[in-house]
Design a protein around this nucleic acid. Structure first.
Length: 480
RNA sequence: GGCGCGUUCGUCUAGCGGCCCAGGACGCCGCCCUCUCAAGGCGGAGAUCGCGGGUUCGAAUCCCGCACGCGCUACCA
């Protein structure tokens, strides 16, 4: 039987990086086995819906370059892929369970349930449904029905025995059935709970491996019990570790930027995010760290997934991003940079941008750093600060003279390029009796307005002879 | 409270009985390179392997307790 995995996001907000790490592992597993990767929208909680969630999710998939075989937009033979469109299926299966005695209608009010829980806690007993309606007589049941009383459907958990989950990541996990109460599988609004819905869908969609977050471990026993009640063979389970915040709590919005769109805006590359996410919780067992998606597909294995949660460390993500930025050919980097350009640079042509990209390549970790590092390429004047122009060990007059001399050199340089400009300026230093550091910094500030820039003469080359001369003379004027 | 999962440098991790008085990477520190900033190269600090018992000639690795963290214990997923 071929592998089929699924991810089951609920449309309750922005696509979260923690969820995506889980999605990624599912995706890798599917691709590795030539299986199907299915997206199913779990919208059984009507109250928590957030409009636009699905669109944002799919956008994130697109940005990361991950495709899906069945689900929203693409459909598939096991649809519909939205739970709210599958209500009749859940009702049919709930009825089956009820008629076979594996589930029962419960008419208890939420008030009674709340009171019950309070009592139990007061007596330091484990909270849980007391199974009142499990033992209703035929007559009592008929009365409730006749009265049209609202109800939920609860699963009748076996009173004894134990259940074992053979987890692909954690190994065998066993629970005593008696620690479970009769959980709700169909809510009074006639929507199924997660427990029922995901399971019916997984079975009907012929899902072979359920790779989900570790918060589901404790529910796995309920799920296996349900499979048994239906007489179905459960899929294989693998509970994946969480992504944690610096406080070791499960990563959430509280920890800052966690939705995929924010990473994009912050200047991260999808390659870097993917690479880092995959290494949070999975390791190849070698010293390799930089992986393409194809390499991940080849090497990924559930056996090497760590059972422990991992803190999501932006510092290391930044390093990956820098690695990828440096790995690009300049024209490719230029294309990546384009969306991040300052307003003044939006009309830059590809050739110019490629030269700029080559200069920035070793200097940025995030594409969002591009505007502040490139603004001087796109503006008319840089308004250099005189105090930056003239630094200790030099005088205003000295620097003004040097800048004029530099302008003359630049005007005369033949050809106008780095290889001609640098030696000419080094000679100028000797002639003027200034240190290269001092002269070059003054020129740098004059041409860019900044003290930290790409190499001076290469920057001049990209700036062009005309603008360079103009800036040098303007700066000299400022020192009058 | 009950049940479950987890626990190796600050962080991500390698390790599956001797090769480990624990290796790599990020970060940090220093040096080199150097026109600034980076990038890069080299080197360094950094982990009594959560704690306590056992098993064994030998344990980070196996077993048992304990502690701590996290999760579940909803008509949320």
């Amino acid at each position: 039987m071929s592998v089929r995995v699924r991810i089951a996001p609920s449309p309750t907000g922005l696509p979260h990086v923690g969820n995506f790490r889980t999605f990624l592992f599912n995706w890798l597993f599917a691709r590795q086995h030539g299986g199907a990767f299915v997206i199913r929208i779990e919208d059984t909680d009507q109250a928590r819906q957030v409009p636009g969630s699905v669109e944002a999710l799919l956008e994130a998939f697109e940005w990361l370059g991950l495709s899906w075989d069945e689900g929203p937009l693409v459909g598939g033979p096991y649809g519909p892929y939205v739970q709210s469109e599958r209500l009749s299926i859940y009702h049919r299966h709930t009825d089956q369970l009820v008629s076979e005695g594996h589930a029962y209608k419960c008419y208890c009010s939420s008030e009674r349930l709340t009171a019950l829980r309070a009592e139990q806690q007061a007596r330091k007993e484990p909270p849980g449904y007391d199974r009142l309606c499990r033992n209703l007589s035929q007559r009592e049941r008929a009365e409730h029905e006749a009265g049209g009383d609202p109800h939920v459907v609860r699963f009748a958990v076996p009173l004894d025995g134990s259940t074992t989950c053979h987890d692909l990541v954690h190994g065998d996990i066993t629970w005593e059935n008696r620690v479970l109460d009769d959980f709700v599988i169909l809510k009074s609004d006639t929507f199924p709970t997660y427990h029922l819905a995901h399971l019916v869908d997984d079975h009907l969609m012929e899902i072979t491996h359920v790779l989900r977050g570790e918060q589901w471990i404790s529910s796995a026993t309920r799920h296996i019990l349900l499979y048994q009640a239906f007489g179905w063979t459960p899929p294989l389970f693998g509970h994946l570790p969480d992504l944690l915040g610096p406080d070791r709590k499960k990563l959430s919005k509280r920890h800052g930027a966690t939705d995929i769109g924010e990473f994009k805006r912050a200047g991260y590359l999808p390659e870097a995010l993917l690479n880092y996410m995959a290494l949070c919780g999975w390791s190849p067992g070698t010293d390799e760290e930089i992986f393409s998606l194809d390499q991940f597909i080849k090497q990924f294995s559930l056996e090497r997934v760590s059972p422990a949660g991992a803190i999501f460390d932006h510092t290391k993500l930044d390093w990956f991003n820098g690695q990828y930025i440096r790995s690009f050919a300049p024209p490719d980097l230029a294309a990546r940079m384009r969306p991040y350009l300052p307003a003044a640079g939006e009309r830059a042509d590809d050739a110019d941008l490629t030269e700029i990209a080559a200069l920035l390549q070793d200097r940025i970790k995030l594409l969002s750093e591009v505007p502040e590092l490139t603004d001087f390429f796109f503006t008319d004047s840089v308004n250099p600060d005189p105090s930056l122009l003239v630094r200790s060990g030099t005088t205003r007059d000295q620097i003004a003279e040097a800048l004029r001399a530099s302008a003359d050199l630049v005007e005369a340089a033949q050809p106008f390029d780095h290889d001609t400009l640098e030696p000419a300026h080094r000679e100028l230093c000797e002639r003027l009796g200034i240190k290269a550091t001092q002269l070059f910094m003054a020129i740098r500030v004059a041409c860019t307005g900044k003290t930290a820039t790409p190499p001076l003469f290469e920057t001049m080359q990209v700036l062009g002879r005309e603008r360079t001369v103009k800036r040098l003379r303007e700066a000299a004027e400022r020192l009058r």
